[in-house]
């Protein structure tokens, strides 16, 4: 497969971070609904934003790989469709938040939609087992109809795990900074209000 195989390390790792980020958003949505602490809403929003970026990276890097291997940028394969639907779910999440002014209601609806939306994500992973797919399944058992599959040699496996670890770490750092930014923005907002009312 040559150099194009190297896309794999970015493709799978960003896909993994995307799914992880959406899981974190759903879980922090659940915690927000149970506890009502605004901080969890900030975590959920931050996680969705990061997840969107990484899922997009996943889709684009997949296209780059598919061009030489499948001879097309895009094909209407179930796996590709469900991944892009997943992206759309979270774009809708941002649109929903944008349409609501009341911050409490925005946080509540965001949490509810993050949970309901996440229920559609498992379909992405189920789809490769149910549908006949062109997408290779490198992790786990393989479908004989998939095209462009390969077996990982030990150095490839090591590189793969390093890339997974690094991307996960990157996610954690980004999340931390984004949540911090959110709380700083809220502090600024509070002080502005205090200054104006004084």
């Amino acid at each position: 497969m040559g150099d194009v195989q190297r896309v794999f390390y970015f493709h799978v790792a960003s896909g993994w971070v995307g799914a992880l980020a959406f899981l974190v958003a759903a879980v922090s949505g659940g915690i927000y609904l149970a506890r009502g602490k605004r901080r969890w809403d900030a975590v959920g929003l931050a996680s969705v934003e990061i997840g969107l970026a990484f899922t997009l990276a996943n889709l684009i890097s997949g296209s780059v790989w598919a061009r030489p291997i499948w001879n097309t940028w895009w094909t209407w394969d179930p796996r590709l469709v469900t991944a892009s639907v997943m992206e759309l779910v979270y774009v809708a999440y941002l649109l929903l938040r944008q349409g609501i002014e009341d911050p409490d209601r925005r946080a509540r609806f965001g949490a509810v939609y993050a949970i309901v939306g996440f229920l559609s994500v498992p379909l992405t992973f189920l789809s490769i087992r149910i549908f006949r797919t062109i997408h290779p399944v490198v992790v786990g058992n393989n479908d004989p109809t998939a095209q462009g599959t390969f077996d990982m040699t030990p150095p490839m496996l090591q590189t793969f795990f390093v890339s997974l670890a690094v991307f996960t770490l990157l996610y954690g750092v980004l999340l931390w900074h984004r949540v911090r930014m959110q709380s700083l923005a809220e502090t600024v907002e509070e002080r502005k209000l205090k200054l104006l009312s004084a």
Binding site: V85, V89, A92, L95, G99, I100, E101, V116, G117, L123
Partner: peptide, 19 residues
């Protein structure tokens, strides 16, 4: 309950109801 209510429902619903 959202400001953009008329356009919002299909956008929220269709991706989620796909399964």
């Amino acid at each position: 309950q959202a400001r953009t209510r008329d356009v919002l429902l299909p956008i929220l619903l269709f991706p989620v109801v796909l399964p």
